[in-house]
Design a protein around this nucleic acid. Sequence first.
DNA 1: AGTGTTTAGTAACGCGCGTTATCAGTCTAG
DNA 2: CTAGACTGATAACGCGCGTTACTAAACACT
Lengths: 343, 343
Amino acid sequence: MPKKRATSQDVANAAGVSRTTVSLVLNNVQGVNIPESTRERVRDAARDLGYVPNATAQALATQRARAIGLIMTRSPEHIASDVFLPQLISGLLTVIKKRDFRLLIEIVDGNADDRAYIKLAQAKHIDGMIILTPRSTDEGIKKLDEMNIPAVLIGGIPECRLTSVLADDRAASQQAVEHLTAQGHTEIACILNAREIYPDAQNRLAGYQDALKKADIPYRDSLVRFADFDPQSGQVAMEDLLKKEHFSAAFIASDNVAMGAKRAIREANLHIPEDISIVSFDDIPWAAYADPPLTTVRIPAQEMASKACVLLLDMIHGKKPSRQTFYLKTELVIRQSTQPYRP
Amino acid sequence: MPKKRATSQDVANAAGVSRTTVSLVLNNVQGVNIPESTRERVRDAARDLGYVPNATAQALATQRARAIGLIMTRSPEHIASDVFLPQLISGLLTVIKKRDFRLLIEIVDGNADDRAYIKLAQAKHIDGMIILTPRSTDEGIKKLDEMNIPAVLIGGIPECRLTSVLADDRAASQQAVEHLTAQGHTEIACILNAREIYPDAQNRLAGYQDALKKADIPYRDSLVRFADFDPQSGQVAMEDLLKKEHFSAAFIASDNVAMGAKRAIREANLHIPEDISIVSFDDIPWAAYADPPLTTVRIPAQEMASKACVLLLDMIHGKKPSRQTFYLKTELVIRQSTQPYRP
DNA sequence: AGTGTTTAGTAACGCGCGTTATCAGTCTAG
DNA sequence: CTAGACTGATAACGCGCGTTACTAAACACT
């Protein structure tokens, strides 16, 4: 049991060659000719010694960390209840593993240093980063492409030149709401997934408006509420709507928020879909097992992560992405939370 | 806009001192006397140049990566639907941030190299690791403490000397089932969260049996089923139980599985809790918003992660943990899925 | 014999930083 | 007036590796 880890120098000594040769052999450097006999001596020595290259030293020498960061601009509490995180991580890891990279997770909450994640890159901890649901107010993001740091946004922000991968929230929302208008609903409430500053919320609101317009239903501000990711905020929003407004259907731009809204409806002794039809957004795993099973828009979170990851790795290796924004297909999953309008 | 990042040498030049002095000042090394005037010159220069120390070089020099790894020994698909992952990550990140460490996520699926995560440590990528729900068959784990690599298990395995953090599943299950017996239920079905080979499932079954014994209710094998993590398997198990057995209550050792069981109950035109009382396990965020809200055992996933992280960081800094296993308190959260037995 | 050319391999530098040993100068005490 | 202690700072080494430039020998061709 060796106390100290073997270095490439140890391998070199054991194989009776120089450290340079060891490096050339183990890294399979092209364009050098070293006879197979020597190569084998080196590889045998490395195996016998249980040699594992020191990644830190490699990173220092190559100026490459072989790691990317997943940056989440949210508070720890929000992260704890983030439904998509496992899918995203899964998507990232499958891509990353194939390319022999590492995944670093970093969280940046609003009041902290705005440049925290930039430092992460400047410190050469990571070669690039994927930024999750950025706020449009985030100043740091603009600095990123000035500094020429490879970065890909998941759920991009307007007027930003960074490469981004997103679902077509607006079109998807429109489709969801059209599912309601098609069934004769004309008074349709809307609860957005997040506050106004989040571009996602704005896009989904726009889709809601598109669908209304197409069905010749006048848009009413009073039927719209902004939630804040969690069920609690959905419950509050729905309670408020039920108290002040009249409607036969609701578009709720997040399954998670819909969970809370459902409770508000139940506590008002109303039923879904008999009294109120509901279409929501995300298709989290429990949407199918809710009571009733929710009709919802599926977001391909895992594929979005994979796509973003591939783009980022390409950028790190110097390939420019073919486009600036990549839209991934959503799908309306029809279950049992809606029914045709009955006066 | 400087093309190249500033190094400590640049700071030294700008401040008119040597690189050594820069290092001593910026790292606040004790026991050296450098007058405040010089210290300020250095700090000013560093700020003006926007100096960010190169973490890789620091790691190489100090032999410390200032990073820990979260190792998951599961397939990417399982990770995508892991309910606890966000809570775990949240727990880890809150601790890690305070200590200025980084979090690396690594996945090791069964058929891959069993030593993959050991290499991670040998490569000095991380200073230590937290291993999630390890399989008891994992050979690599034993190598870990032989190699003196700091590691903490979350949800430990039997006969393993590694430090581990876990919930007392057995006691918690007993408490959950006692909640049912206390309400007069005597025919209580049981659906385990996973198959027999998982220690978790065995522990929860044992707790179920403990509670029955305490209430003088004979244990019947026919009332027990083993599910497989997902709602689908819970639905199948409950359908089978409803077809073959008679019972007024059920202990379902996972909220996720309970989702499926609930559906089976609903589709059999039965109601919770009027026809069947249910107590489940985990307290995932949606348990509170289910219909009816589920009475369930809360697993403090976030605190488990925090605890594990603190232990690991202490180990990395040379402090031995005070015990080998740490049990964290669970809590029975009483909601509305149970009611007293009525013939 | 003299001039390329290929083969097999190495010495040496650089990556950016932490840290130890050392030094020149100043102050104190004997 | 000098040995010793203190102050303020630095030169130089090491961390482990990638990589360039260079060498020494063997070989091929006029």
